[in-house]
């Protein structure tokens, strides 16, 4: 397979916390690829290492060993590559969705999306137009001037999705995006992510412990004790 076709490439990714006798291997020898437009779930119980895997791919947590390539750019190979600008890569290539939406409380819905664009040096007017379009596309056109506190859980998570999509990232990483939502809202968010993965041609990697939320995902990695135990496709085939 042509390597440039992959949005995410992970090869023998290992993360060890601590040293010597206190060393804990959070993730060991993870190897997989995710194509653009693919919706992948990392499923596993608490403490299985799924968030460590996500943060290593998200350029937050430095891998101890192994290689990470994001949209054709090698970012880690036995540690971060020297001179790599992690913040710029996070801005330009990655979008994040969090468990509790993590909207900035003192910014309106529109400003929460605009801030991601302005951080990426988009002029204010362009940022405003793009943010407005995105929010309207997510049925939040009537909520532009509302603060996060005035939004429902589902609405806040949709604003967070708009923020994650603002810079048209190649990879969207979602950490338990439905954990704070009820089942209906959770399923709606997952359906929206699937739609966006296809529509934007972005690879979406979702960490979750809830089996009910991964219906329709292209692939599911089951993580247990720091290892990818197995992989299933959307048909449940191993």
């Amino acid at each position: 397979m042509d390597k440039t076709m992959h949005a995410i490439e992970v090869e023998n990714l290992t993360k060890i916390y601590g040293k010597g006798e206190t060393a804990v291997t959070a993730i060991a020898d993870a190897t997989f690829q995710v194509k653009p437009g693919e919706l992948v779930a990392i499923l596993g119980p608490s403490g299985s290492g799924k968030t460590t895997l996500l943060t290593s791919i998200g350029l937050i947590n430095e891998p101890t060993h192994g290689k990470v390539v994001i949209d054709g750019t090698t970012v880690a190979d036995e540690g971060w590559l020297p001179g790599i600008d992690l913040k710029r890569l996070r801005r330009e290539k990655l979008g994040f969705i969090f468990q509790h939406h993590n909207l900035i409380p003192f910014l309106t819905a529109l400003e929460n999306v605009m801030v991601a664009l302005e951080i990426n040096n988009l002029p204010k007017n362009e940022a405003k137009n793009r943010a407005t379009e995105l929010l309207a596309a997510l049925n939040l056109g009537h909520r532009l001037t509302n603060y996060p506190m005035a939004l429902s859980g589902g609405e806040a998570q949709r604003v967070a999705i708009a923020r994650a999509l603002a810079n048209k990232p190649k990879v969207i990483l979602a950490d338990e995006p439905t954990a704070a939502l009820d089942t209906v809202n959770g399923k709606n968010v997952m359906a929206l992510l699937k739609k966006l993965a296809v529509g934007n041609n972005s690879a979406i990697l979702v960490v979750t412990h809830d089996h009910r939320m991964v219906e329709g995902f292209d692939r599911i990695f089951h993580v247990s004790d720091g290892r990818i135990a197995d992989e299933t496709n959307n048909l449940g085939e191993e």
Binding site: G58, I60, K87, R88, L94, N102, V115, A116, R163
Partner: peptide
């Protein structure tokens, strides 16, 4: 959050 989304 700002740092995570790449803020300088």
């Amino acid at each position: 959050t700002l740092k995570l989304i790449g803020s300088q």
